[in-house]
Computed example of a mutant assay.
Amino acid sequence: MSKLTWAMIGGGKGSQIGPTHRISAGLDGHFHLVASALDADPERGKAFAIDLGIAPERAYGSWQEMLEEERDRSDRPDLVTVATPNATHYEITSAFLTAGFDVLCEKPLTMTTQEAERIVAITRETGRVCAVNYGYSGYPLVRQMRAMVAAGDLGRIRLIKAEFAHGFHADAEEADNPRVRWRYDPAQAGVSAVFADAGIHAFHMACFVSGQAPREVSADFASLVGDRQLEDDAMLNIRLDGGALCRLWTSAVAIGRMHGLTLQVFGEKGGLSWQQQHPEQLLFTPLGGRTQILERGDAGLSAEAVRASRIPIGHAEGMPVAFANIYHDLADVLRAKKAGRAPDPLALHYPTAEDGLLSMRAIAAAANSAGSGGRWTDI
Rank of each mutant, 00 (worst) to 15 (best):
P19V: 08
L348T: 15
V217G: 01
S74H: 10
P279S: 14
V253G: 03
L248M: 09
S309V: 07
A87Y: 15
G199D: 06
R58A: 06
G243N: 11
A366S: 14
C246D: 03
K46L: 03
S2Q: 11
A196V: 04
H30T: 08
H259F: 14
Q275T: 12
L27Q: 14
R310H: 14
D227C: 05
T250H: 01
G167V: 09
R58T: 14
Q212Y: 03
A170M: 08
K161L: 13
G199M: 08
R179L: 13
E295G: 01
D232I: 02
D233K: 09
R296Q: 15
A175Y: 02
D72N: 12
G11I: 04
T84W: 00
A364L: 02
P279R: 05
L79R: 03
E106D: 14
H278E: 13
L357T: 06
M145V: 06
I326T: 15
P85A: 07
V265A: 11
D227V: 07
E43S: 12
I122V: 15
L240Y: 04
Q16I: 10
D344Q: 09
Y184T: 01
A165T: 14
F203S: 00
R44F: 01
R58C: 00
E68Q: 12
T98Q: 15
E68I: 00
A151S: 15
E317A: 09
A162T: 12
P108C: 09
P320E: 06
E231D: 11
Y327E: 04
T112Y: 08
A213D: 13
G243C: 11
Q114R: 13
M319W: 12
R158D: 12
G11N: 05
L52E: 09
Q229V: 12
E70I: 02
S251I: 03
V80E: 02
E65T: 10
R257W: 11
F203V: 01
T113H: 01
R310F: 12
G135L: 00
A305F: 02
T262H: 10
R58P: 00
V149N: 04
P56Y: 06
I157M: 10
A47T: 12
I160H: 05
V253L: 03
K269G: 00
I9V: 15
A196S: 13
A364F: 02
G267Y: 04
A189L: 05
K269A: 13
Q277G: 07
E304I: 01
G18H: 04
E173M: 14
T352C: 10
A308I: 01
L154C: 06
W274N: 05
Q188V: 05
L248G: 00
M8F: 03
D153A: 15
G190N: 06
M205Q: 15
S302I: 05
I293S: 14
Y139L: 13
A55T: 06
L97C: 09
E354F: 05
S223W: 00
A131V: 08
P19Y: 09
H204R: 03
F323S: 00
D344A: 07
L283P: 00
D378N: 05
I92M: 13
A324T: 03
V103Q: 05
I119Y: 04
